[in-house]
């Protein structure tokens, strides 16, 4: 298990290298840069600016410096567009925000999706089941950028229950809608998947064995059926986390949460190389960490996988 974790941690290095090198050259080869503006700077000033950011050096030297600074100083460099701020500053300010509602969104996805799926499975072919499945298919088709405006329309504009944006230090009213808008479609996916796998597990021979032992239904479900029924859901959560990270960019922009998504989009507009690259690395690291966590959780549940690690 420890070896496995270590091995996985090591694979993150080539992944990040590919990401960095690829994005670095992609950005630099593209026309334009952070200092191209409508009225061009005088050559001397331009030279000055470029020197200040080390951009007069050959590309590979810049790349090397960049990587060195990250590895040795955990320094993602200064922002090219936001005066007097480093990428580290921006991340330190925005990332906790994104992470906070992202966390609650994941909680929403799992804490609602899984029980809904289980209830539908246990009440198979009942009105509950049909309603749930129908609603789930429906909400799976609504992406966050359609759902978010609808939520604001209802909860802010019509009923005035929740603020339509902002963060305000992370008070719960400001977290609810971002978390729901981000998670609903995946919550529905989780519910459907859990329902399907629970139905399958309940038909498994070992559940009949558990029944033959005289265990009450409650124990059968909690002790015997739950773990195996959750395994497909865990696998499903891998891509879901990637989608949610993507979605968080949108949520940050739409709800003006002050999360890093806005900085990312701003960075793209202003061609803020270091900002884009730093955030891209952050997003990838997050993806990686979440996936590793899922895999370890999977192994923890499934003894077959555990012993093969």
């Amino acid at each position: 298990m420890f070896n496995y974790t270590l091995r996985r941690l090591l694979t993150v290095i080539p992944t990040l290298l590919v990401l960095i090198v690829f994005s670095f050259y992609l950005m630099r080869l593209a026309p334009g840069g952070p200092f191209t503006s409508e009225k061009p700077l005088p050559p001397a000033v331009m030279q000055n600016v470029l020197e200040r950011y080390g951009m007069d050096q050959p590309l590979y030297v810049q790349l090397w410096t960049y990587i060195k600074n990250i590895v040795f100083h955990f320094d993602f460099g200064p922002s090219f567009a936001q005066k007097d701020r480093t990428v580290n500053d921006v991340i330190a300010q925005g990332f906790p925000v994104t992470l906070t509602y992202g966390f609650w969104s994941a909680v929403f996805v799992l804490v609602l999706g899984i029980p809904l799926g289980i209830v539908a499975a246990l009440r198979h072919n009942s009105i509950w089941d049909y309603t749930m499945t129908g609603l789930a298919i429906f909400s799976q088709i609504f992406p966050n950028f359609v759902l978010a405006p609808i939520l604001v329309l209802l909860f802010t504009l019509s009923w005035g229950l929740l603020p339509g944006g902002g963060w305000n230090g992370g008070q719960w009213e400001y977290i609810v809608m971002p978390a729901i808008a981000l998670g609903t479609s995946y919550m529905a996916g989780v519910a459907r998947l859990t329902r399907g796998s629970m139905l399958e597990v309940l038909n498994a021979p070992f559940i009949l064995t558990a029944r033959a032992k005289g265990l009450p239904e409650r124990v059968i479900i909690w002790r015997h059926a739950l773990k195996p029924a959750l395994l497909p859901t865990l696998t499903y959560m891998g891509p879901v986390f990637v989608y949610m990270i993507t979605g968080s960019v949108f949520i940050d922009v739409f709800f003006s949460t002050g999360g890093i998504g806005q900085d990312f989009i701003d960075g793209a507009y202003s061609r803020d190389y270091s900002m884009l690259l730093g955030l891209a690395i952050l997003y990838s690291l997050l993806t990686f960490a979440l996936n590793l966590m899922l895999d370890l959780l999977y192994a923890w549940i499934d003894p077959k996988v555990r012993s093969s690690l």
């Binding site: 992944t15 990270i245 993507t246 793209a268 507009y269 891209a280 997003y283 990838s284």
Partner: peptide, 15 residues
């Protein structure tokens, strides 16, 4: 597949 696709979208479109 472990890189969130939005990164490429945004960067590519911007540049």
């Amino acid at each position: 597949i472990s890189i969130p696709y939005i990164i490429f979208f945004v960067v590519w479109q911007a540049f």
